[in-house]
Design a protein around this nucleic acid. Structure first.
Lengths: 361, 361
DNA sequence: CTGAAAGCGCTTACAG
DNA sequence: CTGAAAGCGCTTACAG
């Protein structure tokens, strides 16, 4: 062999060797230290159950042989992962480019740290989210935009995996964290209408990768209802041509912005369902030499950090993204610990933020 | 019992029941379908090894009983996790608030998705990074700012866990991804000096939680050397009072900005080691009614998205953060697959970005 | 094509 | 205080 003594089932002596290519196991430490596997386990997990001398000798042997208990074996034995999962709502390309999603992850991460858990980001596996959920090595799952009819919900249920959804459709079987999306959109659209705008283009979110048929309670739909309701109040109706759909990225926002500028009849205001897209539109306008808000008003949704940084600052809806993540994670940990939730449906407040990107005309 | 038939060691019949609180195992499916555990395993993992009929019956039984193979048991048996870890360089509070780190994570995430792996974000465990690394359930680890002397490096080595570091100190035992930090800082400082600035304040990064004694090759130190070298060229020497230290967050940047403004002698230029801090300084100046760059110049480091969004746009060093993450992850996967690396030390290009926040005087 | 059995590396109830 | 042994739920080399 390559200069090291091989591991040896019948318990023959094995010497320490730095070039060892196999990790020693609890069995090796037991043999080498002269104690039992039980004792070795206790040395690491509950030293009070063995004598000080035993503990010391075992830890010394472990140090000498380079033994660190295998976390996977330990977790397997204890039936836990010490990790919660965040199911990326779209491909990494989009999810981790979205400041709103990143804020949600931030909120979740803080709670994980507090409980000593890791946070596993789960991309769709081979393009299949179901596959990813079936094989996710986590103690619980946080999802975005989930509805109870979706296939992955039954997978989570079958696996007896606790889950919470953010921006999904509340249901008895679907603990969720939301704001009142319809009302928020109603209010911001009223602001736009009060400012005198009538030629409006809406930029909606593309449906998630999870898209399911029954989704009239989905966040994009709830928001559309809010916009429509405000328009109805002033006797307007939303036309199909007034609604565009965009990925939630700045690049796609720029694309949409250009598309809008290329129209024969240019709208006086763009209402986007996400700030990152609104910012993309603003950049496209600036590039085309248009002044915001003088030549065109733009409003967004989310109130990401960038929105107060860009000029003009964005009029938008403040969504407490971190807080959503925090609440979802706290609820999930309660479920993991078999505690009961005060409520399966958590709704938290939003705020309309009036800034400079919306101008009266 | 609560309306369900209990699982039963001696193999007695067990009926399907939706209220079952225990997940069925491969054994249950074997018993119920009349095939062996081997056959059940093959049905899920290599159907070609059993008859179509057997496969069908087994999958049906699985469906009926709500069986999904336990990912943890499967991974344990196969000695893999299907996840790589990213060790958060600081508390979640700071790490996930830092756009640069988020870009790195984004780059890593894309590669994980490509290989069908999840990405585990690992916060310090009970404040101990060593503890976190000992128990991390991953196939490999990406760290930031690591040096070979650090305790966690020997933990990773003992665990035979492949690792790559970003912005760490290159070493034969430490595969790493870097830019030439010293030269980059030399160049941007030369720009500042050429613009006529002599009263300069530097805002350095706080040392990582991993701080070790031997760190003169650490990124902050390399950068300081670059700044110093440029100053030496024009016969200047950096005074202690010219160097401030900040957390890598906008809040702390604002705090530092205020601190600088409160000085008796106000500098003409602030040179920050990170854009997010530079932006914080700019905000503090604006709040105080100062004009940037007229009353004070500011330069940064990183070229995060926000830097081209803020007014005035920031003069900075463009770091390819995504690319760093991507390279580190690709290297890590090569190590996980026992392939050899072309080089253990990857250095990638940076660019000096001249924008409006630096003004000649 | 099929299955009995060993193995992955831990934990822990139990008996001494 | 100590240890033998069963158990966690899979995979797979091997024999039939």
């Amino acid at each position: 062999m390559l200069g090291y003594h091989q591991l040896n089932k019948d318990g023959m002596a094995m010497e320490e060797n730095v070039t060892m290519t196999k990790r020693p196991t609890i069995k090796d430490i037991a043999r080498e230290s002269g104690y039992s596997k039980t004792a070795v386990s206790f040395a690491f997990n509950d030293p009070s159950r063995i004598s000080e001398k035993a503990c010391q000798q075992i830890l010394e042997t472990a140090e000498k042989l380079g033994y660190i208990p295998d976390p996977m074996a330990r977790n397997f034995s204890l039936r836990r992962h010490l990790s919660i999962g965040f199911l990326l709502p779209q491909m990494v390309q989009f999810s981790l480019q979205n400041p709103y999603t990143l804020q949600v992850i931030f909120g979740i991460g803080n709670v994980c740290e507090k409980y000593g858990y890791t946070l596993t980001l789960i991309p769709p596996l081979h393009k299949s989210i179901t596959e990813a959920v079936r094989s996710a090595a986590v103690d619980g799952l946080i999802t975005m935009g989930m509805q109870v009819e979706m296939e992955i919900v039954s997978v989570m249920q079958t696996r007896l995996l606790p889950y919470v959804t953010i921006d999904g459709t509340p249901d008895a079987q679907m603990p969720s964290v939301n704001i009142d999306d319809e009302q928020a959109c109603f209010e911001i659209m009223r602001l736009v209408l009060e400012a005198g705008h009538r030629d409006i283009v809406l930029v909606s979110l593309s449906e998630d990768a999870f898209a399911s048929p029954a989704k009239d309670q989905s966040v994009p739909n709830k928001r559309m209802r809010g916009y429509r309701r405000a328009m109805a109040e002033v006797g307007l109706e939303l036309q199909k041509s007034q609604v565009l759909v965009s990925e939630c990225t700045m690049e796609d926002g720029i694309r949409i912005g250009k598309e809008i500028l290329a129209r024969k009849i240019r709208p006086t205001c763009v209402v986007a369902m996400s700030d990152i897209v609104a910012i993309g539109c603003i950049l496209a306008c600036k590039q085309a030499g248009l002044g915001i808000p003088d030549d065109m008003s733009v409003v967004g949704f989310d109130n990401i950090d960038e929105s107060s940084c860009i000029m003009p600052q964005l009029t938008t809806v403040d969504q407490p993204a971190k807080e959503k993540g925090r609440l979802a994670a706290e609820a999930l940990f309660r479920m993991i610990n078999k505690e009961t939730l005060e409520s399966v449906h958590m709704e938290i407040p939003y705020r309309i933020i009036r800034r400079e990107s919306l101008k009266s005309r």
